[in-house]
């Protein structure tokens, strides 16, 4: 990690040793740029970079790269999410070049949910390459200046390359090895799945530390504040690979009527406090799903403000 790979704000924050704080924004189900601008205002100045989701949960939305451009216009650094579900290697490489040409400097490489979860459940899932191979492809374009097939490109996209990691999905023992594979593929930073089971995450990061993985890439712990008991129960029962302990649900239930969301934010802030001290954790990725307006308050209470100028 000697020289800057992309020069993105996120990279500079991490490289300078600051505790990173990133946010997330889901593009609208329509062509209204104002919706993006409105949500973005809550994130401006409160996070180092904003992930723009790519047809999340397989539901069609404004293209991730397009919403990224709106953020750039607003003076906010985007993190361009790209899933393997919706395009083949040609379209992916084209979008990477185009996004970079417009100033996008961070990317998050993901598999993507299966189409059956979305609004076009019978759409063909492309999955021409997988998330690991996508990381390899972006790295090759950036570092070798070559397309996946080997031909030279002119003007390498110098992306800061990210990927996701789910410390909770099974086989649990394999998770840290899969992280190692992502690092071997060329990932610079990881944003984890939402963490609720802190004990399991501590074990995961400790293994990653032992294997030297946290020295090879920055790990940002994923946090999503619970808005309601229903949300917690839904995530526990319905969202694959999500580990929501019963104690957490009990704590939310114990908060009393009208105070659950407040308790959810309190828990999230406690998590951030712990992550700040946790060896191997370089920052937090705050996924306040459809709760962007709460980010200023969360950032304030999690004591991550002001964000560093680098």
């Amino acid at each position: 990690m000697d020289d800057l790979k992309s020069g993105s704000n996120l990279e500079k924050v991490l490289k300078a040793g600051h505790f990173a704080f990133t946010g997330e924004l889901g593009p609208p189900r329509g062509a209204d740029a104002e919706e993006v601008r409105e949500k973005a205002q809550y994130l401006k100045g409160n996070v180092d970079s904003v992930n723009i989701t790519d047809n999340q949960t397989s539901v069609v939305r404004m293209a991730s790269w397009a919403a990224c451009l709106i953020l750039i216009q607003e003076g906010i650094e985007p993190n361009f999410q790209m899933v393997c579900r919706d395009r083949n290697r040609l379209a992916m490489q084209a979008d990477i070049l185009g996004a970079y040409a417009h100033g996008v400097r961070n990317m998050l490489c993901l598999s993507g949910d299966h189409p059956m979860f979305g609004d076009h459940p019978t759409a063909m899932g492309v999955f021409d390459i997988d998330s690991m191979q996508l990381i390899q492809m972006v790295k090759k374009m950036r570092d070798e200046g070559k397309f996946l097939a080997g031909e030279e490109l002119h003007g390498a996209p110098k992306m800061f390359i990210g990927a996701a990691s789910n410390p909770f999905a099974d086989p649990y023992e394999w998770r840290v090895h899969r992280l190692a594979k992502k690092i071997a593929s060329g990932v610079d930073f990881i944003q984890t799945q939402c963490i609720y089971n802190m004990e399991r995450f501590r074990e995961f990061i400790s293994k990653a530390n032992d294997m030297g993985l946290t020295e090879k890439c920055y790990i940002l712990a994923g946090v999503t504040p619970m808005k309601s008991v229903g949300m917690a129960k839904y995530m526990k029962a319905k969202v694959p690979g999500m580990d929501v302990p019963d104690e957490l649900i009990k704590r939310l239930q114990g908060a009393g009527k009208g105070k659950v969301a407040e308790e959810g934010i309190k828990i999230a802030c406690e998590q951030v406090e712990e992550f700040k001290e946790m060896k191997g954790v370089a920052g937090v990725h705050m996924m306040a799903i459809e709760w962007e307006h709460k980010v200023p308050e969360i950032a304030e209470r999690a004591k991550v403000l002001p964000r560093p100028e680098v």
Partner: peptide, 20 residues
């Protein structure tokens, strides 16, 4: 594999079952 993944399992694996 519902996503044709060559370097799995993806994060959607759920107690030994596929997310689908």
């Amino acid at each position: 594999c519902a996503k044709g993944v060559f370097n799995g399992p993806c994060g959607g694996t759920n107690k030994g079952k596929c997310e689908i």
